[in-house]
Structure formats: C-alpha cells, structure tokens
Design a protein around this nucleic acid. Sequence first.
DNA 1: CGGTTGCGAGAGCACTGCTCTCGCTTGAGA
DNA 2: TCTCAAGCGAGAGCAGTGCTCTCGCAACCG
Lengths: 244, 244
Amino acid sequence: MSTTRGARARAREEVTAAIKDEARRQLAAEGAAKLSLRAVARELGMVSSALYRYFPSRDDLLTALIIDAYDSIGKAAEQADAALLKKAAKSADSKAGAIAPVRRWVTVSEAVRAWALAHPHEYALIYGSPVPGYTAPMTTVPAASRIGLLFFGIVRDAYQGRGIAEPPLPEELRPEAERLGADLAPDLPPAVVAALVAAWAQLFGLIGFELFGQFNRVVEDRATFFTHAATQLAHGVGLVLPRE
Amino acid sequence: MSTTRGARARAREEVTAAIKDEARRQLAAEGAAKLSLRAVARELGMVSSALYRYFPSRDDLLTALIIDAYDSIGKAAEQADAALLKKAAKSADSKAGAIAPVRRWVTVSEAVRAWALAHPHEYALIYGSPVPGYTAPMTTVPAASRIGLLFFGIVRDAYQGRGIAEPPLPEELRPEAERLGADLAPDLPPAVVAALVAAWAQLFGLIGFELFGQFNRVVEDRATFFTHAATQLAHGVGLVLPRE
DNA sequence: CGGTTGCGAGAGCACTGCTCTCGCTTGAGA
DNA sequence: TCTCAAGCGAGAGCAGTGCTCTCGCAACCG
C-alpha cells in the first residue's frame, strides 16, 4: 500500500500538497501574474531554493494548478449532473426515469458558470489567455476533456432515448464534421457532433465575457440571461424542448 | 494647428509613439507577461527611468496598448464591412443595393477572427484574462464598443430592410431583454437585442477556443467550421438565409 | 534675459526566478 | 548492523524586474 511507502515519500507528498495549497491561495487572492515562488516558500516557512526540489520551475507549479483546476471544474459539472439524475430517479415526475436532456444540459452549464464565478482566477488560468510562454503540456489534456465528455454523454443519452433533432449541415462542412464525428463520437450523426463542439466553445464565450468584464454596464440579470442562452445552445445541438 | 505647437510637444508625441511601437513589438513577440519596461527603454536607447516621463507605470503602458488593440480590431471589422458594401454597390448581383444581412454578419465575424489569428497576443490582451490586478479603466469602453456597435448596425439595417425573424423570448428573460433593448437599441425588438448580445459573446468564445488551443487535436478545418458557426449565430439573432 | 518647467541620466530599493554549493538526515543495500 | 549514496533544506549569489529620487541640462514663456 501507499502508507508503507516510507516516511520520506509521504513527507514529500505532504509538502507538495502544501505548496500547491498555498499557491492556490495566492492564485485565488491575486491572480496568476502575482503568484510568486518566493512568497509561497516564505509563507510555508521554507527558503525559496528548497521549493525547487518539488517543482522544477514556476511554470511547472502553474501546470500542476492548471490540471487541478480542470479536475475541479470537471468534477463540479459531473456532480451537478449526477445530483440531477439522482433527484429525478427518486421523484415521480420523471417519465420512465428519463429526464429532459435540455434540463441536464442547462444544469451542467450552470454548474460550470457557478464554478467559474467562484474561482475566477483559476478559471482565467485554464480558459483565459495562456499565461507564460505557454504551450500547455499534453498532461493537461485528459483533465481538460472531462467537461466535453460530459456534454457528449448528455447528447448521446438523448440520441439513444427520445432522439434529437439533427441540426443542418451545409455541404462545405460535411468533411470536417465527419472527421470530427469519427474522432469524437462515431455513434452520433456528424452534424450533431459539429454543432456540439461549436456550442461547447460558445458556452465558454458567454462565461468568459461575464467573468472578464465584457458584460459590465451591459447585461444585468446575468443568471437569467445565461440560462436562456444555454437553453438556446441546447436547442442548437438538437436537444428538444422539455415537456414540463 | 498642431504643427506649430512647439518642438517640445511634437517630440513628446513622437517618443510616446515610439515607446508604444516598441512595446507592441515585444508584446507580439513574447506576450504581455514578458513585456518589460526596461527592455523597451533599452531598445530605444534610453534609460528606464526616462520612460516614466511618458507612462506612469507598466500598467498604463498596457492600458494604452489595450485601447490601440480595441481600435485596431474594430477598424479591421469596420473595413471588412465597408469593403463588402462597396463591392455590392458596384456589382449587379445585389437586389436594390441591399446585401444579404447574413453575409455581412459572417464577413465581419471572419474579419474579427482573422485579426485575432494575426495578432494573438494583442487579442489575448483584450479578450483573454485581464493581466495585472486588472480593473480595466473606463477609458477603454468606447474603443471596446466598436465591434458591438457594428453588429447592431448590421441587424438594424436588416430589421429596417426585409425584416428579421424575431427569436423566441421566454417570460423570465423579458424584463432583462427590455432593459437591454432600452439601453442599447430601443428601435429593435427586445428579443433581438438579447439574442444579439448572446451571439456576440458566443462569437468570441469560438475565436478564443481556437486561439488558446482548446481546438488543438479537435477541430482541423477551423475556417470552415468558424464560418458555419458564425452563420448559425446570425440565424439565431433572426437574420434570414441568404438567397444566393 | 531670467526663471520655470520638461526631460534624460544615474543610483538605488525591494522584489522576482533560478543556480550552485554546502552540510545534515534518511533509508536501502552490503 | 554499518555504509554510503540519495534526498533535502539553508544560504549566497546572479541577472533581471518595476519603480523612486535626485541631479543637472536644455527648452520654453513671460
């Protein structure tokens, strides 16, 4: 087991976690630009050079935080979906145990937005402009995919259930849509996959504009506005209206 | 006139412009994070402290670059629209001199995307995460509004021309949509204004995802993909299909 | 012409990421 | 059980940063 892996290895994990925690604190407080290795070390009562035993550079620390942030937002989205499904399974208002796909889509979208509003600097880290000399390492890919996969799951369930209204697909886009479909979801119509990818990006456009201040002095009731826009996006990928 | 305003004032403007030019060069080459006042001064053959006669802080220099970037992207979008209108006015394939609103919308969208691809770091500066301790000054507002105003102009022309297909507006969103409409475009139906604002944000979501690497290993033929998505956004705000 | 003002140069402060060396401690193999 | 390499923290140090302050020189205005 991992408990008997020696005190050394355990201490290393604890220190690594403490560094990440303190770094995350500074990130949340001041933003990625002001995250300072020396300040983290100072707060932890160690000297700055010791920190390099755990992270070879500041960018590596940031990369670790990026992966954690992707995991955190992905987990929040998945939990919102699971809670909705669980609630629907218990209550009697669900027909044959199936919940309206649009409602799942909107619920997950709102969970993503809520996480972003609660962790603005971490959101900026993963969905804003790449911070350092960038080139996000391959390591981040699986964690970054979780939200996309979740949306694919919702659309797939709808497709295999009551079916979806296939969006239009102009001839020029067909090759790319088929390539996308083959790569991401061979069981779904290419038009749906293409529309889903577009909706995915557009969703984060809405969140980014709200978070980064583009909606200041423009949109006031942002929650309602977002819910409506997310609903429209769901319709755009072919999810039909809820019956309720 | 401004030419006789004294050699002093003229020299000041020249130096200010030279600083911004060099700063923009470094921004384009390395990104906002690596923009260094000292490096700018060094490149210009002056000492770093002299630079503070022109910009009171690094953030003020960045703010100046932000305003310039907003103006630049806004100008690019306006020119693309003007060129399209001019071309249509000359050629005979336009009915009554009116060009399909969808085509204007898509052309402007593509111009915005092209500017973003050509100036990724400047785009990140204005539409990515706010860089320093942020709080974008009021000064940037007018320059930032140009693209939004342009889209409003396109929709307004369509509305006053052959009309537009009013998007759905659920009851919950009505108050916010009416507030938006009163603020931004009292002559347009509130449902259209709300849809336009959402489409505006979603458009930049598409561009941001492409630019910041979220589409890596996902979307290949990004130009075609974007054109289709932009077209769908135009439909979403009620612009009808082109007849051609 | 004299005095105010704008401006460049230089030194300096506090901070950053990062490297290197020096000892102490730990833990696995002989 | 002893040994010795590996892991680790401390400290000094380098090159770079944003920014401040003071000092002279030059240009401009009355």
